[in-house]
């Protein structure tokens, strides 16, 4: 439970952080430097020596990465915003309750007080809570590197198991969520793995007039949008009928806590619950 030796730095500006991230032996990012955000996944991995980065660049003291604000109909959340801050934000609760609900479901109080939204999406754990909701909300991430910024959808960002579109030298700067104009209803339904607090299956539903967005976490190698369910709902199917197809064709995860078959089954149950609740919350 003792990590290997590593260097630690706590830069005071984003520029400095990017410089240090790109500070490999040949002056380019080589993967031996890791960004430390909340550290809720990285630090345990390091203590088990499953991860052994040579350098950690801590973003905690980088100014301007911790904010929640609305700008022209878009919610901007800085990468270093903690889960607790998202969960308890009056703005998020009022304008984007699904994200607050997802944040409130993450881990436990201690984790929510330290873990960050940027760290969570960058780690891309296949059972993390945020991705399902971010997918249902059609959220985007903004990545920054010394070369500049780029913005992409969360869906494109999540490539595979703990694998994202982040290039070496890039940092997740913020998450943006387009705010609802109409009165869509949203809900996040999660079966909790009792040891880790991760989702065995988590389904986020966002249902408005003429559209449905369903994000799924825990079921497959990465969080994804269940377009087959969305299409059925948009075609007028009821919750149970639509939810029933959520695991079709999915290569479901299997572990001690839930076999692949059980996960598939539970996904249909939780999808139906999320959909029903989302519909009930339409306004």
């Amino acid at each position: 439970m003792i990590p290997q030796n590593f260097e630690y730095s706590s830069p005071r500006s984003l520029e400095a952080a990017l410089d240090q991230l790109a500070g490999g032996p040949d002056g380019s990012a080589d993967g031996s430097t890791k960004i430390l955000a909340g550290g809720m996944s990285l630090i345990p991995l390091m203590k088990l020596r499953l991860a052994a980065p040579e350098r950690l660049v801590d973003l905690r003291r980088v100014p301007g990465l911790n904010y929640i604000r609305e700008e022209s109909g878009v919610l901007h959340i800085g990468a270093m915003t903690t889960h607790y801050e998202v969960e308890s934000s009056a703005l998020v609760r009022a304008k984007c309750p699904l994200l607050a609900e997802a944040a409130a479901n993450i881990g436990d109080v201690q984790v929510r007080n330290v873990g960050t939204i940027g760290g969570s999406v960058a780690h891309a754990d296949p059972a993390a809570d945020y991705p399902a909701s971010l997918l249902a909300l059609e959220a985007s991430v903004t990545l920054v590197s010394k070369a500049g910024e780029r913005t992409m959808s969360v869906e494109d960002f999540l490539v595979d198991t703990m694998t994202t579109a982040l290039e070496p030298g890039e940092i997740v700067r913020e998450v943006t969520v387009p705010l609802e104009k109409s009165g869509a209803g949203t809900a996040y339904a999660k079966m909790v793995q009792p040891a880790s607090g991760f989702a065995i299956v988590g389904v986020a539903a966002r249902i408005g007039e003429g559209f449905a967005r369903i994000g799924v976490t825990g079921l497959a190698s990465k969080a994804y949008r269940a377009r087959n369910v969305e299409a059925l709902l948009e075609g007028g199917a009821d919750a149970a009928t639509a939810a029933a197809v959520i695991a079709e064709g999915v290569d479901a995860n299997s572990d001690l806590h839930a076999s692949a078959d059980y996960r598939r089954h539970v996904a249909t149950v939780y999808a139906a619950r999320a959909i029903r609740q989302a519909i009930s919350r339409k306004y």
Binding site: P126, T163, F198, N253, D255, L256, H257
Partner: peptide, 10 residues
């Protein structure tokens, strides 16, 4: 354990 299956597939 939690990530073994998914990692093997990956």
């Amino acid at each position: 354990q939690r990530l073994l299956d998914v990692t093997a597939k990956h």
